[in-house]
């Protein structure tokens, strides 16, 4: 019996412990303070709230959805640390999360001219480039909800 090669290209995150893909879709990997409930992204060593004495944090998934607080279209290619196979001007958003955080992220799945402050967004995984082992290197990004996202 012939072995059928997996047609799905293996994906690796651009940085470990930054986000993960679960049965419910992508989620950012962050922390939540067990004392004051403040969320952090990426994972924090401690709680930064000066009014909180607990300073104990636990890992949580967060940021599955949010709203666009602001955005920019980056017209120049960033320095080489930012690696992408398909360079074109792209949007960076500041996304307001229900967990009380604003997160910086690439915006995908939308025409640049369709971006609107306050538009609803969902977390997605975006392929930046294919590495020399043939794997897709992916980052977290936000995109309009698949169903059109009326709200």
């Amino acid at each position: 019996m012939a072995v059928i090669e997996d047609p799905v290209t293996e994906q690796v995150p651009v940085a470990e412990d930054l986000f993960r893909v679960t049965a419910d879709g992508a989620a950012l990997v962050g922390t939540r303070c067990t004392g004051c409930g403040t969320h952090y992204f990426p994972k924090s060593l401690s709680c930064r709230n000066p009014r909180c004495e607990a300073k104990a944090v636990e890992q949580v998934d967060l940021g599955r959805s949010g709203r666009l607080y602001s955005y920019t279209v980056q017209a120049y290619r960033p320095p080489a640390l930012f690696r992408t196979d398909s360079w074109a001007p792209y949007a960076i958003g500041l996304v307001e999360l229900p967990e009380g955080l604003r997160v910086l992220a690439m915006l995908v799945g939308s025409e640049l001219s369709d971006l609107r402050i306050e538009m609803p967004l969902e977390l997605a995984v975006h392929v930046l480039y294919r590495d020399d082992q043939g794997r897709d290197v992916v980052t977290y990004a936000y995109a309009p909800p698949a169903g059109g996202g009326a709200s």
Partner: peptide, 23 residues
Amino acid sequence: TDFLRWVAVGATNPAYWALEARR
């Protein structure tokens, strides 16, 4: 986070100021 802002987002310094300006 200086590593993350480059590799994961590609956010240049002007991008940070631009987010403030757009808002």
